[in-house]
């Protein structure tokens, strides 16, 4: 991680890999540089991954309270990464930030991958599109996140104070950013028509947070987006099934069609 200053905001940014530039936006669980998918993806892309304000050890300015605030900061980051268009992989809450960012500056991007993104409201006002994770027991949330939750259950007794601090900060900032309207910006669907880039919406077959109709509905808001379901994985396919995830991602990013 290196710390950079963007628009007056101090930000921790991880960089790795080699190849054309790619911006990676992490989800509510935060960013860790030791996930195997980074090594696999890094064989073909130079990855730039900011730890969003309030996540990891990145400070949280008091004026930030919605994902589009972070997207505005990242407009400056795009210019720093490369002069030309870059690829994007944006996951979950990061998918929301990425969708906001792409709607602001579609010309800065080449191809876009959204992994189980939140950020829009598709269904009826009488039913949550995304279950209320803040009113759900932690064990139930884990089942929604992973196909095999027992492999990924955090054990506080084996975590350092800094790791626990990061986990608590990630949760707190997620609540701050997503609380109301819950997990979506009502304006975003009316801005996504600007995102004419080729886009892929990935969803794990066993994702208990993001439903298949949600992803289908979200993808339809972009003029040139398709969807793909990954088998044997949940809400975090880059962590749970990294090889399949990277294979699918590169096939799209390097594909012709």
């Amino acid at each position: 991680m290196t710390t950079i200053d963007l628009a007056g905001v101090s930000l921790d940014v991880w960089e790795g890999g080699d190849g054309p530039p790619l911006l990676f936006l992490h989800g509510a669980g935060g960013f860790r540089g030791d996930h195997p998918f980074l090594g696999l993806l890094g064989r073909r892309r130079r990855i730039v991954a900011p730890s969003h304000p309030g996540f990891g050890l990145s400070p949280l300015p008091d004026w930030i309270d919605r994902p589009d605030d972070i997207a505005h900061i990242y407009l400056d980051l795009l210019t720093r990464i490369a002069p030309g268009p870059i690829d994007l992989i944006a996951c979950s809450l990061g998918g929301w930030i990425g969708a906001e960012l792409a709607s602001m500056a579609p010309e800065k991007f080449r191809r876009l991958i959204f992994v189980a993104p939140v950020g829009v409201k598709i269904g009826s006002r009488d039913k949550l599109d995304i279950p209320d994770i803040f009113a759900t027991p932690a064990a139930e949330v884990e089942k929604m996140l992973y196909h095999e939750p027992e492999k990924f259950r955090p054990d506080p007794s084996k975590m350092s104070d800094q790791e626990l601090t990061v986990m608590l900060r990630n949760r707190e900032t997620t609540a701050l950013l997503t609380w109301e309207p819950y997990m979506h910006n009502p304006k975003l669907p009316h801005r996504l028509h600007r995102v004419t880039n080729k886009a892929l919406f990935l969803r794990g077959e066993h994702d208990g947070l993001i439903s298949a109709p949600y992803v289908e509905g979200y993808a339809k808001l972009l003029p040139d987006a398709r969807t793909l379901t990954l088998p044997n994985t949940g809400h975090v396919p880059q962590v749970e099934t990294p090889e399949a995830f990277v294979t699918a991602a590169l096939a799209f990013l390097d594909g012709e069609g």
């Binding site: 803040f134 009113a135 759900t136 027991p137 932690a138 608590l168 949760r171 707190e172 997620t174 609540a175 701050l176």
Partner: peptide
């Protein structure tokens, strides 16, 4: 239960 007693933040 904890999810009501200890909301994040």
């Amino acid at each position: 239960p904890p999810h009501f007693a200890s909301p994040p933040g």
